[in-house]
Amino acid sequence: MPDVRVALPTTVDGAVDAMAGMPGAQFLAGGTDFCVEVSFGLRRPPAVVCLRRVAELRRTEITPTEVVIGAGATYSDMGARDLVAALPALAAAARTVGSPQIRNAGTIGGNVATASPAGDTLPLLAALDARVVVRGPGTERELGISSLLVGVKRTALEPTQLVVALRVPRVEGPQQFLKVGTRNAMVIAIASAAVVLDRGARRVRAAFGSVGPVPVRPRRAEDELSDAIDWGRLSASEAAVARFGELAAEDCSPISDHRGTAAYRSRAVAVVASRGLRRCLEHVA
């Protein structure tokens, strides 16, 4: 039985240094993805760097222009009143993750670093062009969420780099998150949608989960709808709302698997895109 080395750092730098000193080690935050993979025998790292004691990873700050969320913030933490007010769709997405026990353990940083196509917080982060703060040995850098997520469970992170925080721009306007699953709670998304109306920039922002290797930004749908909305009244036509769903589905590249068929995922994206948009609008005629 090989022993597993465990580091229990209390600072971000300590965590990064510990990782640099233990090749092949794995960062452990909530463990809600990692421990499942260990149970299934898919991962057997020789060492683990535990992040739970790193207090600075759980720091959250809300400024007039952005929300900075520590990577160690749990899904339950997303339900804090000020965070719900600033990012209601993120709170809604976090509430769909697993069970209360899972939400008390799993973290938003883990959701980003795991980079599952079904990561529930990822569509909203992608729709808002969140920035990811990353610390490595002696370095700190920032990259956009869409640059960080490069494929199915693949990121642009180096093995020694740690996601420290997410910087989410504050956007004036309504936002919605909808997630489709075959069970009414505790389910992996078959498809999900984040829809944001950016009133300041007069832009529709949207992203879809579980319908491609990474969250899908439907650029054509965003462009067309941004032009079709009466931004003063926050209204659009029925046809425009339906068109948004159709275009959204066209931009996705879903697969068929045991959770659902590609055809169903396309349909589901069209439906939740339109419904999300409809909820954001004040008038649909």
């Binding site: 769909t96 699953g181 999900s192």
Partner: peptide, 16 residues
Amino acid sequence: VLARPGGAGLTADHDD
């Protein structure tokens, strides 16, 4: 809203 089909995913409005 949690009692509608889709539950916690908040996918359905009353008219759906």
